[in-house]
């Protein structure tokens, strides 16, 4: 007896939701949304937040070995920004009704995914330059579009992040430009980093449209506004002239401008490598997760001390528990 009216209500709510999406309206946390929209956003946003957090590790590796005090201060600021970006997006994800502790647990237990790119090692100082230039460059291409996502808290976090990422990309490109006009060894170091990071950076924008199970649904809901292949093409078109400007070559013999399409054609991506890294078999997957687990365990006494301090000083208006 009860079943019929409930279905009708659900259908009506769903129709209203789809109409709001179609009209380009922004969905806010307390608005009704289909369960599937909620779970897809939690998956996508938490993966994004985890990527920011794990993304601190490859660069953190070089903080104590930066070539100058200026570069060290810049790198610390950048890594701190990544922590902040993780917090912006965790905060947005929590508005969907999921607990922060649960998200962290998903990461530490290996159930959650994060960007494949951070499972590659940072072997030289030039890697700091290329990460800012390629990895943050690709992230900007992706996040500029996500800043128009239909879910308000996600879009607002992206706007905040995009403003800060421009510093990341520019400082990276400056490192590479400086090395590229340095000694032959320095230029070779820059070229080596470019060679190692180019293909993983292209993969970072996600599987090809023909093999991306979530894209169609996320596009329909206007969470994503461009497909992975469209974003990848845009990143390539932007980056090729930047490589030319500093006299470095991108490691793809098939890369050339196509006057008909007005885009750069490029060679085949090794998707087998991508899926291997996604499945946990990249060069640094285990090391990255272990570093996060160690950080969580080693921070335990800080959390305990902060709670004890808060309990001791709590007044009725500021109870901590």
């Amino acid at each position: 007896m009860d079943q019929q009216p409930q279905n009708t209500t659900e259908e009506a709510l769903n129709a209203k939701f789809e109409a709001r999406i179609a009209a380009g309206e922004t969905i806010e946390p307390k608005d009704w949304m289909p369960e599937r929209y909620r779970t897809q956003l939690i998956r996508m946003m938490s993966q994004h937040a985890h990527s920011e957090v794990v993304g601190m590790l490859p660069e953190g590796n070089w903080i104590t070995r930066a070539p100058s005090l200026k570069r060290e201060m810049v790198l610390i600021s950048k890594v701190q920004d990544e922590a902040g970006h993780g917090l912006y997006i965790y905060c947005g994800t929590e508005t969907l009704g999921v607990d922060r502790a649960e998200l962290v647990d998903q990461l530490l237990s290996g159930r959650a995914k994060y960007s494949s790119i951070f499972n590659y090692p940072t072997l030289t100082w030039a890697d700091m330059g290329v990460i800012g230039w390629f990895v943050d460059g690709a992230a900007i291409v992706n996040q500029t579009v996500l800043a128009k996502a239909s879910y308000g808290p996600y879009a607002r976090a992206m706007i905040r992040i995009c403003k800060e990422e421009n510093f990341h990309k520019k400082q990276g490109y400056e490192i590479i430009a400086t090395l590229a006009k340095g000694t032959p060894e320095q230029k070779a170091m820059a070229q080596g980093a470019v060679n190692r990071w180019w293909w993983p950076s292209l993969m970072m924008l996600g599987p090809s449209d023909t093999n991306s199970p979530n894209t169609a649904e996320l596009m329909r809901w206007r969470v994503k506004r461009k497909t992975n292949d469209e974003l990848r093409q845009r990143f390539i078109d932007l980056t090729v002239p930047q490589a030319d400007a500093v006299g470095l070559t991108l490691p793809d013999p098939d890369l050339k401008f196509n006057p008909e399409t007005q885009h750069y054609d490029f060679g085949a991506i090794n998707w087998d490598e991508f899926w291997q890294v996604v499945k946990g078999n990249g060069p640094c997957n285990r090391e990255r997760l272990q570093a996060r687990r160690d950080a969580h365990e080693n921070g335990r006494w800080v959390r305990e001390a902060a709670e004890a301090y808060a309990a001791k000083h709590s007044s009725p208006a500021q109870s901590a528990a």
């Binding site: 917090l87 905060c91 929590e94 902060a306 301090y309 000083h313 500021q318 901590a320």
Partner: peptide
């Protein structure tokens, strides 16, 4: 946005 903290000062 929002933050998690044990007390107001934090």
């Amino acid at each position: 946005g929002s933050v998690h903290a044990a007390d107001a000062e934090m």
